[in-house]
Amino acid sequence: MDIIVLTKRVPVTQEEELKIAPDGTSVDLSRVPFRMNDWDNYAVEEAVRLCEKQGGVITGVSIGDMESDEVLRRAIAMGAKDGCLIESQGVVNDPFTRALLLKGFIEKENLSFNMIFGGVQAEDDQFGVTCGILAAMLGLPFASMVIGIDEIQNDAIILRRELEGGIQERIKIKMPCVLSIQSGINEPRYVSIMGIRKASKVERKYFKADKYLDGGAGSLIDVIRWFYPPKKEGAVILQGELEDTCKQLLGILKEKGVLQ
């Protein structure tokens, strides 16, 4: 069972107040730390668990600048055999272009695989489509939001996809295939600093992105401007006697759609 796992290095912005440049053309991430995309972390863990049971090797692949080497080291520390970095000029915002790059890379470098894993989405752009586009381009079957792998058969895999409202669907999908892995499918192991130091000794491979685009399609979509979403209002203290405030409270619950 050979698995390619797509990993992305993303800024950790949950607690940050992000600043947009005055002309709206960029978001300042200069003081924000980065790490492996959380969903990819689950994808790597799932691949490692599968290969521990079934045998096979895992190759981590990432698109980005040299800093993205960090997520490959982490993937190796978790159990990947090696890591490949597709070095791009600047950030690739369009998921279509990312998928095109990955397709070119996998085909030109003759990467062999039974499955390709990625996270459901990246924490930064939250597009959630790179794996699906890649699957269609490669002509492979695809399933997203994979929340459980139930059985591996000879040429197929039985898995569960997460739907809305506490429902899952169980499907059978032929291999080779592309799966996007949902968070919560497993509990990713902790990777210690000593583990990462050891992984740093495994050689990673570096490739230039321009080789894989065939001079073709640039981005199909462009970000023309960044802007702040409408501001949330501050805490409103409900005023009045007990009965009034409670009535207002019930009104809010209705407005939010949790009370009929």
Binding site: V12, E15, R31, P33, E187, R189, Y190, V191, S192, G195
Partner: peptide
Amino acid sequence: VENGDIPVTIQKALESTFVQKNPWGKPRSK
């Protein structure tokens, strides 16, 4: 820790410390 098998809340604190240099996961810039 080296086996990677620790309580999940401890794991979060360690990962936050690695990224933000504090176990609460708050931005270093602040």
